[in-house]
Amino acid sequence: MLSQLLRSEWMKIKRKGLWFLTVLGPLGVVGLTMVNYGVRKDYLLSLSDDDWAIYLDNILSLTPLALVLGIVILTSMMASIENQTNAWKQWLALPVSRSSVYLSKYVIATTLLFVSSIILGIGTTLYGLTLGLGDDIPWLRIMQVSFYPWLASQALIAFHLWVAVANNNQGITVSIGVVGVILTFMAFFLPDWFLWKWPTLANDWNNPFINIVLGISAGLLLFIAGMWHFCRKDVS
């Protein structure tokens, strides 16, 4: 059932620009870092002996913003594909369980963002190499910078999917998303329990793993809550 649903969902997102956004996000992060290094490379290289560390910190400062923005836009666009002509009523009158439908939407959103993370990892490595940051490439740290924010964002994906699917008016969804992006921008000042802080991997214990555990466990709870709501909702 889920595999059939996923095949259908992949077909539905055709020509809607979701793949374009998936690629644009990580390229945007690497592109902005290029601008940063293009303008003040000497200064940035003078900050520390470990040039890779400074470079990856720069990448990591931009990733959460791109990721949160990506989550908002992707989930909202996925819901709008159904909302546009109220296709929910056709889709949910097919022999499919609502929980599988909800799960398939989540899988699509998180897979697209995973692909973004892969592209980010590749882009980060390639540009890092062209900058000549040293031969000792910190592969593990690159992987962490590329994929940890995605893992820590599972709660946000679940939250925004719920909001997008529950509201026919995507204006509400995007407004909440914009507030979220601003909150992520100010993450440094936010308490550790705040959802929007988790993709930055920052916390009082200086242990990014905590954000991942929080992101995945809260993500699971929010996913179950959203699915519970979706399964009981009357389709108008």
Partner: peptide, 9 residues
């Protein structure tokens, strides 16, 4: 009611 479809497909 009104037909539901995906206009971009």
């Amino acid at each position: 009611e009104n037909p539901s479809y995906y206009p971009h497909l």
